[in-house]
Design a protein around this nucleic acid. Structure first.
Length: 274
DNA sequence: CCGTCCTCCTGGCCGC
DNA sequence: TGCGGCCAGGAGGACG
């Protein structure tokens, strides 16, 4: 599932391919993926516009247009943005097609169809609530150890749930949350207000470290994630716990366990993580 | 504020 | 081989 490093990899691969290209035509094959405005307004709003930049915040991607508006996309679990040449076969699970200049197509594909798109900005006051309330991103100047300490202290919640809450930290999903907890030797079920200062320090470092490593490795590919060139990331080879239930802990050799925390599968080492 | 449950969805995998 | 059933999970909403 695309989390911050995967979405960033999509952004990086997408930008040089679509920057300066004009959207000649938009085709929405699954109307409910368009959150705002109506599908006809979305189509007429983007047709004729040129993409000037591609940005990312948390797991959201924004395609800036030359009139100040922007297309915002969330890939959720299985969404992908792909660029193909006109002669290439249509990608599988294509849900939205943007015909671009220079013989290119930008596709929003999605197997499970939880992905969303919207058109906003300009004189349109509508905002995506999730986007508007995003917390600071790992590796950013506003994500400080003191910020984490303060948020953790005033919250009473299992740390795994805390890490997945995009209002508190933007960009972590199930993979990187489990990885950060493993790197910091903290159990997913530990309550935030019971973390020691030392643990908060370790967690702060771990969150930044696992995200940086994910970015360096062009993301983690399990099943569905690929970037705009159709490439996979290789961070999977470096994972400590995610997807490794029943296998030995890379640090101590104990068998990794899987439990449910907040409805999410959570893999951890019962010996290392406290 | 927090937890739990539900919803959206379908490919992949397991057991029979 | 084929089929039923379950799982994966990001986010938002209802409810206690």
């Amino acid at each position: 599932m695309p989390e911050m490093p995967e979405v960033e990899q999509v952004r990086i691969s997408l930008l040089p391919q679509i920057k300066g290209k004009k959207i000649v035509k938009a085709e929405v094959r699954l109307p409910r993926m368009i959150l705002h405005p109506s599908v006809p307004e979305f189509i007429t709003g983007v047709e004729g516009r040129t993409v000037t930049d591609v940005r990312r915040k948390g797991k959201y991607l924004t395609l800036l247009l030359d009139n100040g508006q922007y297309i915002m996309a969330h890939l959720r679990m299985t969404g992908a943005l792909l660029v193909t040449s006109r002669e290439a076969p249509e990608p599988s699970f294509a849900k939205i097609r943007f015909t671009l200049t220079d013989g290119l197509d930008l596709w929003f594909t999605d197997i499970r169809t939880f992905g969303t798109m919207c058109l906003c900005g300009g004189s349109d006051p509508w905002t995506d609530k999730g986007y508007a309330s995003l917390g600071p991103e790992p590796l950013s100047a506003v994500f400080t150890e003191d910020y984490l300490l303060q948020r953790v202290k005033k919250s009473h919640q299992m740390i795994k749930c805390f890490l997945l809450d995009q209002h508190k930290i933007a960009g972590l999903g199930n993979i990187y949350a489990d990885e950060a907890l493993a790197a910091a030797d903290i159990r997913p079920t530990r309550y935030t207000d019971r973390l020691t200062k030392k643990q908060v320090h370790a967690l702060y470092e771990a969150v930044n470290q696992v995200i940086a490593q994910g970015l360096r490795n062009h993301g983690t590919t399990f099943r569905d994630y690929q970037d705009a060139d159709g490439h996979m990331g290789n961070n999977r080879d470096f994972l400590l716990v995610y997807g490794r239930k029943g296998q030995p802990c890379t640090k101590c050799g104990a068998e990794l366990k899987q439990i449910k925390v907040g409805g999410r599968g959570s893999v951890y080492c019962p010996r290392c993580q406290k």
